[in-house]
Design a protein around this nucleic acid. Sequence first.
DNA 1: TAGCGTTATATTTTCAAATATATAACGATG
DNA 2: CATCGTTATATATTTGAAAATATAACGCTA
Lengths: 123, 123
Amino acid sequence: MAKSVKHILKQELEIKVGGKLWLESEGERFFGPGPMELLEKIEETGSISNAARAMNMSYKKAWELINHLNTQTNFPVVVPQAGGEKGGGSTLTAEAIELIEYYKALRKRFKTFLENETERLKI
Amino acid sequence: MAKSVKHILKQELEIKVGGKLWLESEGERFFGPGPMELLEKIEETGSISNAARAMNMSYKKAWELINHLNTQTNFPVVVPQAGGEKGGGSTLTAEAIELIEYYKALRKRFKTFLENETERLKI
DNA sequence: TAGCGTTATATTTTCAAATATATAACGATG
DNA sequence: CATCGTTATATATTTGAAAATATAACGCTA
């Protein structure tokens, strides 16, 4: 029989099992909620700087996340253009879109896991 | 068919799905890897201060973790004694032991989840 | 070719989280 | 009843991550 903690935790508190997921390589995280949101915002706004602004992240950090991410993939997932119409911008490759889709699916499975575990707290 | 990212990520890099789990109440985390290790160390060493030292954590932080944890449970999971033999110490209640057992089981299920997801990366 | 907002990069500054330090009360023990 | 190493708490200090700032190069456009 599985261990239960129902009688230990205060039932009136709405206690949940929470968590966080990421992709890591040699122990270093390179993709998670932050980069995920960043990719989406780049797609929406057309540039790394706009995306960073939109999510209250410094440009430097955003650039580093993207740069790191690009080193983990066979081809860059974000293609930068310095200069040009409107000063330039960045676009997502098809691979970035696939990565987003993958992460959404992964997140959904994780959500189910967390919900199951939260349910189990009440048993 | 599920989204695959095998062709996107560099295969030579040993990429894994990593993660972290915790218990939260009203959005605030009160139990995770840190408190878990702390409880185990308190059991081993007999006091909060020894436990903190053993895991290179400041006493203040250790005390706060334990204090916060005690507010989420029907009964304190750690019982402190200031003064007495050897200056005092802290002992775990049966509930703390059960919480440790629960977390170990949860962690095991999560490990399986992560391993499955890591396997899926190669498909 | 001047202007624009971007990418790319280095340097400085800020700030929150953590540690470090200090102090009082505790209670068994010799 | 002095000693000991705790718990409990407040305050000061450190420090490391993040943001802020600065600057150059880029390339389209007017």
